[in-house]
């Protein structure tokens, strides 16, 4: 009885983790492309504006913002990766149990 409750809990937890992992992956997929491209366009723009121009300042500020988003995405990536490893561990556990 206890064994079956534990298994049920693990399955529930596994499903939850799977959903979180999948959501994180799709968020990453949707965000990384535009963030990657925007970073590059900012760099290209920085190469073509004057050293002391106001536009350069704005672009540098934007770059800072994009860096923060990039760092956040990297953390989300490692989180999604961790989720996936957890799911693999749980499903392996369940296979062993049965």
């Amino acid at each position: 009885m206890i064994k079956s409750t534990n298994k049920k809990n693990r399955t529930g937890k596994g499903k939850k983790l799977f959903t979180i992992g999948e959501t994180a992956k799709s968020v990453l997929g949707e965000l990384n492309n535009p963030v990657d491209a925007t970073n590059r366009f900012i760099n290209l723009a920085l190469n073509s504006v004057g050293e002391d121009s106001q536009s350069r300042q704005f672009l540098l500020e934007s770059k800072q913002g994009m860096r923060r988003i990039s760092a956040l995405l990297k953390r989300l990536n490692s989180y999604a990766d961790k989720m996936e490893r957890e799911i693999t561990k749980i499903s392996r556990f369940d296979t062993d149990d049965s």
Binding site: K25, L28, G29, L31, N32, N33, V35, D36, N39, R40, N43, M66, S70, L73, N77, A80, D81, E84
Partner: peptide, 27 residues
Amino acid sequence: SSYGKADSAANAITLGAFDYLIKPIED
């Protein structure tokens, strides 16, 4: 790739990819 997973990177390298880069990528 937008999503870095060790096994898909390893799979790509095994198939003969030169490198596997995760976005966002520095210029």
